[in-house]
Simulated assay, not measured.
Amino acid sequence: MGAVNIWNAMEVAEGASDGQTSGIPSSHLTIDHSLSIPEMKPRLVELCKDLFKKWPNLDASHLSVETVSGGITNLLLKVSIREDSSKTVDLMVRLYGPNTEYVINRERELQAIPYLSAAGFGAKLLGVFGNGMVQSFIHACTLTPSDMRKPKLAAEIAKQLHKFHQVEIPGGKEPQLWHDIFKFFQKASNLEFDDSEKQRKFKTISFEEVHNEVNELKELTSHLNAPVVYAHNDLLSGNLMLNEEEGKLYFIDFEYGSYNYRGFDIGNHFNEYAGYECDYSLYPTKDEQYHFFRHYLEPERPYEVSEKDLEALYVETSTYMLTSHLYWALWALIQAKMSPIEFDYLGYFFLRFNEYKNQKERYCSLAKAYLWGSKK
């Protein structure tokens, strides 16, 4: 059963296409992120009965559950409900990672989802509950980092990102990048770890150095006059899905979405070519970036984009790519303290911050040369 049909079947959120969330079913129930799937199953039954009144007699025999992704922030579950011998409804249940409110603005996310959905992005929001949300299930395969650099897919991602950046979300339109980075910095710099080895590694970080780098980069990027758009801010391969039969690409998971600088969204996406292993030898070449820029700037006439416009976006993206490293480095420190997910967040901080330092001189010099030359 396709995503749109599921949405209609639920008969919820009549105003969602107009960006209204008041019609979305809600429940106060929560599901413990640490439970095994068999232990979660009866709780998921109760959740579905509470949210969707059409299944008052639902029991565990009608429901199957499988993990879609553990991720490094949330737990995603595919919940299949057998209504009768010929009809099954597939739902996506997203359990927020514990303590993710330290790094994610859930109110901002829930406000944006209906507008993005109405514009053709992501899954439909079907319900919200104490520590997660229920969405329509997208029948597609998640991309890998190597998929993103395939010319045909890169062009389609660029076209979709151009469209994504046109979506208008009500409310303030101030870019959130520096607000979020300074918020992360404040939280990260005051952490203490119970684990002595983690605390030892944490103590090797010079937060004075990090703070100076943040201020220096904030000053430099302020001269670029980058357009402010509604940005995804986390366009990694795991948030891109492809249905090859339909030839349809999906953007999913908008929890980090906000108004932000265009160059940050693109530069952050390019950083994700490296994957979680942070193999930055996979960062796209200038030719690969120009291929992306052409399809982003002029989706219908990519080869009519001028060299001047390509160069300007290259400088903008390259500079904001550096800010992406600082953003996720600080984010990782907070996750190292707060998240129960098995992932070396502390090591991830050092990978991102060290790559920032490796690339800083090259791309800051590029930006300064471009800005100085443009004022001649």
Rank of each mutant, 00 (worst) to 15 (best):
D253E: 06
K248H: 11
E311H: 12
E209Q: 13
H33K: 11
L297G: 02
S34L: 13
Y256A: 13
I169K: 06
S146N: 11
V210R: 06
K183I: 09
Y250R: 00
L116K: 04
I181P: 02
L63I: 12
Y259W: 00
M148H: 09
L235P: 00
K150T: 12
N5C: 12
P151S: 04
F343N: 08
Y259C: 06
L240E: 01
Q289G: 09
H295A: 01
L371P: 09
P25Q: 03
P114C: 14
T100M: 05
E209S: 13
V79W: 01
Q160N: 09
M10W: 15
M338A: 14
A9D: 15
A158N: 13
L29D: 06
V93C: 05
V228H: 04
F207H: 09
V93D: 03
P42D: 13
Q111K: 15
T67A: 11
Y283P: 03
A336T: 14
Q135A: 05
S258L: 07
V210E: 03
K87E: 04
S365Q: 12
V12A: 04
V167D: 14
L91A: 05
K54A: 10
V167T: 09
I138M: 05
D279P: 12
N57I: 05
I157Y: 05
L116H: 13
F353W: 08
T88K: 08
Y256H: 14
I341C: 07
L44F: 11
N358W: 03
H162Y: 06
F184N: 07
P145E: 07
A118E: 10
